[in-house]
Design a protein around this nucleic acid. Structure first.
Lengths: 152, 152
DNA sequence: GTAATGTAGTCAATCAAGTTGACTATGTTG
DNA sequence: CAACATAGTCAACTTGATTGACTACATTAC
C-alpha cells in the first residue's frame, strides 16, 4: 500500500470514508440509503428542490431523478409537494426521517474527520482541506463546472 | 463552492481528476476505456494476472471480470493466454495498445499533478500525499482491507 | 387572446455493469 | 482412483442509468 499516485489516493480515501459512513448508517437502520442520495438531500436543504434542479445538480437525467425520488418516497425519506407557483412542477422535500438521516450523516462524518485529526493533526487537516478546495475550484473554473458529480 | 465537508472534497477532487484523465484519453483515441479498467491494467503489470486475482483485486466477481476482459480483448487492450502450469487457467496480459494506454495515463496524471503543484506548491503536495496515505493505511488496517475498491 | 413554442414531470423501452447459479474442464487430496 | 476444490464461462436477473414519447401547464409572439 505504498507509493500510490494521487488519483489512487483520492479514490481510496474517498471510498474508505464512504464505506465507513454507510456501514454506520446501516447500523442505525438507514441501510436503504445509498451514496448518491446524500448529495441529493444536501441540495434539498432547507427548502426542497424541483426534479430538474436535482438532475442538474447531480449530473443525471430528470428521469433518473424521478426514479430515485420514487424510491426515496417509498422509503419515507422525501415527499413530493405541489409547486407553489408552477402547476406543472413539484418540489421534493425531506420528511422527518429524511432530516434524521442527514443529521446522522453529519455526526458520523464529524467523528471520522475528528479521528483523522487525531491521526495527522489539526493543522495538517486544515491544510489538506484548503488544498483540496483550491484544486476543486480550479477544476470548476476550467471546465465551466457542471461535470463534477459528487456523492454525499 | 465554499465550505465543503471532507468527503465532498475528496469526491470532487477525485471526479475532477478522473474526468480530466478520461477526456484527455478520449482525445488520444482511447475513448473506449472506462475508469475501472485502469486499475485492472495496473495489476496486470508486468506479468499478467488470472481472472480470479483480478476479481479479488477489484472487489468484483470473476464473472464480471470475465465480461470486462471480453470487452477489453475486443478493443485490443488485453489478450488471454494459456496459463503456463494450470490448464484450467488463463493469464490476461496487456497488448501493445494496452501498454500504450497505460503510458498515456501515467503521462497525463503526471501533468495533472504538476499543475496542482504549481497551484499549491511542492511541499504542500508532498504533505497532502503523506496525509492521504496515512488515512488510507489506517482505514485498511481497521477494515482488514479488501473493501477498498479503487479506480485508476 | 389565442396560437406556437417551451418546460416539468412521468412512462416505457433499452443499455451497461454488476450479481447469482449452473456448468465444464482441470487440479488436488485422501 | 474417488472425492472434492478451483478457473473460467454461459445464462438469467437486478440496478441505475439512458433515450424517446407523451401530458399538462407556462410563456411568448402576433
Amino acid at each position: 500500500m505504498n507509493q500510490l499516485d494521487l488519483s489512487s489516493l483520492l479514490s481510496l480515501s474517498f471510498s474508505a470514508t464512504i464505506n465507513e459512513l454507510h456501514d454506520r448508517l446501516s447500523d442505525l437502520s438507514y441501510g436503504d440509503i445509498r451514496p448518491a442520495h446524500g448529495f441529493m438531500f444536501k441540495y434539498m436543504i432547507p427548502n426542497g428542490a424541483t426534479g430538474i434542479e436535482l438532475a442538474e445538480h447531480l449530473g443525471i437525467t430528470k428521469q433518473a431523478v424521478s426514479k430515485m425520488v420514487d424510491y426515496l418516497e417509498k422509503c419515507d425519506y422525501v415527499t413530493r409537494q405541489p409547486h407553489p407557483t408552477d402547476k406543472r412542477g413539484k418540489i421534493i422535500v425531506l420528511t422527518e426521517r429524511g432530516w434524521s438521516v442527514v443529521k446522522a450523516k453529519e455526526k458520523i462524518l464529524t467523528e471520522i474527520e475528528q479521528r483523522w485529526i487525531e491521526n495527522i493533526g489539526a493543522e495538517r487537516m486544515q491544510m489538506l482541506k484548503e488544498d483540496l478546495t483550491k484544486l476543486v475550484n480550479e477544476a470548476n473554473e476550467d471546465k465551466l463546472s457542471s461535470r463534477l458529480r459528487p456523492v454525499w
